[in-house]
Design a protein around this nucleic acid. Structure first.
Length: 814
DNA sequence: GACTCGTGTCATACC
DNA sequence: GAGGTATGACACGAG
């Protein structure tokens, strides 16, 4: 249902097209009656153009919704089909949709408030875009401007109706972009509005004479911009395409936008050879390159729209990739074709960037990484010095020769952020352009940016050729070598943890946990074997019997190196007990705990980690002795506590103690073991000992010392393991930190390359030869000289130099 | 009953 | 060479 509301969407210019197209279609239908009844047809046209349509225009201007089809379907095909052909995908115009929104309605495109309005809209879009990945919407802008060679303006004046009827003199001149105009940024759009003199209907209901006059004047401005009749000729257009291919890059950057716009429109229009009137090309026809490309755009729209609307990835990515126009198409045309796919600030290059962003995100998702990770990864952080250092002063002069189309070039959308006062107004979405610079699909960027030595900074040489197409093999990312999958995994995980999955508190906790010496050692500290160092130290000060078990229990602690070696030490309590008991030799290592447990089992129960410490290494004792070593019943303890206790202690002695007792060694095993050699020798000299006694004493001393040594050895071994674990954790921490730093560096490097790329494109785009024509990126390239100057050299030379530079590192590696 | 762990002991190497 | 230390290997008990 084609309604006036829809008409109002496409604006007053579109209404011109409506009227013209309608006239043309009517001509087609009434052509057979043309000769028989020209007057009748003329009256019908006049009725349509001057009567109904203009009345509809007026109604639309005042916001009245009128269904035009209801007036026309009886005699004419639907206006939608008349205007747009079978494909009606190009009906909506974002700009006008915006104007029809609540906050956008009522703003005249010539109004000063329009900038504010678009600024507000842009900022709002930025805010809304913060939490999602932006994908171009499917809205298509159609800008059509009627132009009359005689200077008469159609629409509001009766003469326009006559002009419409004049088949020879009538020329339909659209806006700059062949009727399917890209959805530009609101900012750029407002500028374009002013530049193009495009007029949108004043929406206020009071359409005064002054308003109509203003419209008239503005249309005259459009007409004054003038376009030749020949540009609408299809054959002429075909001839031009060849020449265009060579001159496009330069011609588009020249200040010849009116011709360009008309030419662009001409590509989208077919000319009736008989009447000379132009009409929109039938998209499904496929004979027109533009129509084909538009179909591709449609496919691309269909492919990208679901993702943008429902956050779903296209089912077949390759289809989208194929849908992206290849470089084989004329860059200008390509831009024109790409542009409808873009919303907001997206230029063709932005689309490519977004596409790469999409691909990278998918890759990151494949690595279980959130998509926003890549956004964070590639988006310049606020206040990033890199993004600010490269910004030029707001008053940086802009070459007026830079054509409007250049502004629609991929890289130029970023250039605006660098060379225009719109730096601060660059939408956040454009930050997505800080994506991998290696384009999987060649776009106008390559055709204009081309292969240069400087370009080689950003693109592999294979891509720099202008003849490259999208079907080329995937080119290596110059940064790819720096980031292998494993690193990306770790980076991603870290970013995920740091930037995504954890809030600052959690991140700090994670960091603390990561920085702590816990981890595996935490378990050991909780293990019974990891008795506190105090326990170990206390045990070391205890008797030899206790030191064994206690030092063993403290072997897991990391304080070994601080405590030093564990040795036997005299335990006064034990010695006293031994002296009281008249025992000879040193106590078994576990006997102290065993006594403690027997004396007060609750003490041991309070120390569950000591449960398995007190081993009874009495396997050398006779089985009968072992049997008798069982716990005595409490009743027996009551009867003869001292005797029973002595028996119990006797049973708990080690075999060396038993041997010492059996051999009647006159001193304790503790002394035997722990006394220095000199004192030990003195001690031995004091007593008359047999060889068997001396041998036993030496064995006791040897075994005792070896036991301590074994304990220390195990302690050291465990401590070594713990230290190794700690070292591993430290190394992992360092590695993670280095990876984070590497990501930061890569991000900075990418940003710098982006800036250099923009600068390159800007500089190259401004260069003009002696004839004032821009240099072709396919033939020339910029190159940095050693002294810092920039030289314009032939591309072939630049490519050769680039190859040489590539070979040098390889040779060095060899 | 197999297994693990802690411990003591031996043999050996080294200082 | 003796003494001390370190360590691997083994055995044993306990869980």
């Amino acid at each position: 249902m084609w309604t006036v509301e829809t008409v109002s969407h496409v604006g007053l210019e579109d209404l011109d097209w409506v009227s013209n197209s309608c006239t043309f279609r009517e001509d087609l239908k009434t052509k057979k009656h043309k000769h028989s009844g020209p007057s009748a047809m003329l009256s019908l046209k006049k009725y349509l153009t001057e009567g109904l349509l203009q009345f509809t225009i007026l109604l639309s201007l005042i916001g009245v919704r009128v269904d035009v089809d209801t007036y026309l379907t009886s005699q004419l095909p639907p206006l939608r089909e008349i205007i747009l052909g079978p494909s009606s995908a190009y009906t909506q115009t974002q700009f006008h949709n915006l104007r029809n929104t609540l906050d956008g309605y009522g703003i005249h495109p010539k109004s000063i408030d329009l900038d504010n309005y678009f600024t507000a809209r842009r900022l709002l879009n930025q805010v809304r875009a913060l939490d999602r990945f932006q994908v171009p919407t499917t809205e298509v802008n159609a800008w059509l401007v009627h132009r009359d060679p005689e200077g008469s303006v159609s629409g509001s004046q009766p003469s326009s109706g006559l002009a419409l009827e004049s088949s020879s003199g009538l020329q339909d001149v659209t806006g700059p972009d062949n009727g399917v105009r890209e959805s530009e940024t609101e900012q750029g759009f407002s500028e374009d509005l002013e530049d193009l003199g495009a007029v949108a209907p004043p929406v206020s209901g009071d359409l005064t004479k002054e308003d109509i006059d203003l419209i008239d004047i503005l249309w005259r401005q459009d007409i004054d911009l003038g376009a030749g009749r020949e540009i609408f000729d299809y054959s002429h257009r075909q001839k031009e395409q060849d020449v265009d291919k060579e001159l496009r890059d330069g011609a588009e950057q020249e200040d010849t936008w009116p011709g360009e716009g008309a030419e662009a429109l001409a590509r989208n229009l077919l000319v009736d050879g008989e009447t000379g009137e132009s009409f929109p090309a039938q998209v499904p026809g496929g004979e027109d390159q533009t129509a084909l490309s538009l179909e591709e755009c449609l496919r691309l729209l269909e492919a990208t729209c679901p993702f943008g609307e429902n956050a779903e990835f296209p089912a077949d990515i390759s289809s989208i990739t194929e849908a992206v126009p290849s470089e084989s198409e004329p860059p200008g045309l390509q831009n024109n074709l790409l542009s409808p796919l873009l919303t907001g600030t997206e230029s063709p290059f932005d689309l490519e960037q977004q596409w790469q962003d999409l691909m990278s995100i998918m890759e990151m998702q494949a690595m279980e990484v959130n998509t926003s990770t890549s956004e964070v990864l590639y988006n310049a952080p606020p206040g990033d010095p890199l993004s600010t250092n490269y910004s030029l002063a707001p008053n940086t002069p802009i070459n007026q020769n830079v054509s409007l189309h250049q502004a629609s070039l991929g890289g130029c959308s970023q250039d605006f952020s660098l060379f225009s006062p719109e730096v601060e107004s660059l939408p956040v979405a454009s930050s997505s352009t800080l994506l991998p610079l290696v384009p999987s699909n060649s776009t106008s960027l390559n055709s204009t940016f081309g292969s240069t030595n400087l370009a080689g900074l950003f693109f592999p040489p294979q891509l720099n050729g202008t003849a490259n197409d999208t079907a080329g093999p995937e080119l290596p990312d110059p940064l790819g070598g720096l980031l292998d999958e494993a690193m990306l995994d770790e980076i991603s995980l870290m970013d995920l943890a740091i930037e995504e999955g954890f809030n600052p508190v959690q991140a700090s906790q994670l960091e603390e946990e990561f920085d702590s010496d816990s981890g595996l050692s935490l378990d050991s500290s909780h293990s019974p074997s990891s008795l506190s160092s105090s326990e170990g130290s206390s045990s070391s000060s205890s008797s030899s019997s206790s030191s064994s078990s206690s030092s063993a229990s403290s072997s897991a602690s990391s304080s070994f190196s601080e405590e030093g070696a564990v040795g036997y030490s005299s335990d006064s309590e034990t010695l006293d007990l031994e002296e009281a008991e008249g025992a000879v030799g040193y106590q078994p290592e576990y006997s102290k705990f065993c006594r403690m447990s027997y004396q007060d089992p609750s003490q041991l129960s309070c120390l569950p980690y000591l449960e398995h410490v007190g081993h009874n290494h009495t396997y050398n004792m006779a089985p009968s002795a072992l049997d008798s070593a069982d716990l005595p019943p409490p009743s027996t303890l009551k009867k003869g506590s001292k005797e029973k206790q002595a028996d119990f202690l006797d049973k708990q002695m080690s075999r060396d103690e038993h041997r010492a007792r059996a051999m009647k060694i006159p001193f304790t095993n503790d002394k035997i073991i722990n006394l220095p050699v000199e004192e030990f020798n003195e001690l031995l000299s004091k007593y008359q000992l047999s060889e068997a006694q001396l041998s036993l004493i030496r064995d006791i001393r040897r075994r005792g010392k070896n036991k301590m040594a074994a304990q220390n050895c195990r302690k050291r071994k465990l401590d070594t393991i713990l230290n190794l674990e700690r070292d591993v954790e430290d190394l992992q921490r360092d590695k993670a930190r280095l990876l984070r730093e590497k990501v930061e560096f890569l991000r900075s490097l990418r940003q710098m390359k982006q800036k250099v790329q923009s600068l390159y494109q800007e500089v190259f785009g401004r260069l003009r030869d002696e004839n004032g024509r821009p240099y072709s990126p396919s033939q020339y390239a910029l190159q940095y000289a050693g002294d810092g100057s920039v030289l314009l050299i032939p591309r072939t030379l630049a490519d050769q130099q680039a190859r040489r530079q590539e070979r040098k590192p390889k040779d060095r590696r060899k």
